[in-house]
């Protein structure tokens, strides 16, 4: 088994932990963090393919990851702001209770 296989298996593990967390937890913050874990797993794949690819172009995988990290940061900020807005409205951040889109 090559290092590339190992890296991909590790990122699979991280992705599935994030998926399980995002599906199982009822706290909105933990669901968002599960999604962040899945994004991190995707970034690990980019770096793994850049490092162990057959003919890596200098810096290509790293550029991908840098942009992905920037977009993930924006997503986390907006997500947490939405959570705080929902909390102010409902005094509660359980997903089961956020069933209406009423203003």
């Amino acid at each position: 088994m090559s290092p590339l296989h190992l890296c991909l298996l590790i990122s699979t593990g991280l992705f599935c932990i994030g998926l399980a967390g995002a599906l199982a937890r009822s706290n909105t913050i933990l669901v968002l963090l599960g999604i962040e874990l899945m994004l991190n797993a995707a970034n690990i794949n980019f770096i793994a393919f850049w490092r162990f690819g057959p003919s890596p172009v200098a810096g290509n995988g790293m550029i991908f990851v840098l942009f992905a990290i920037a977009v993930a940061a924006a997503e986390a900020a907006v997500g947490l702001a939405l959570i705080i807005a929902v909390y102010r409205h409902q005094k509660n951040i359980r997903l089961q209770d956020s069933t209406t889109l009423k203003g």
Partner: peptide, 10 residues
């Protein structure tokens, strides 16, 4: 992991 893979900047 990124450090291990040699992507220090990332």
């Amino acid at each position: 992991f990124y450090l291990w893979a040699g992507a220090e900047f990332v």
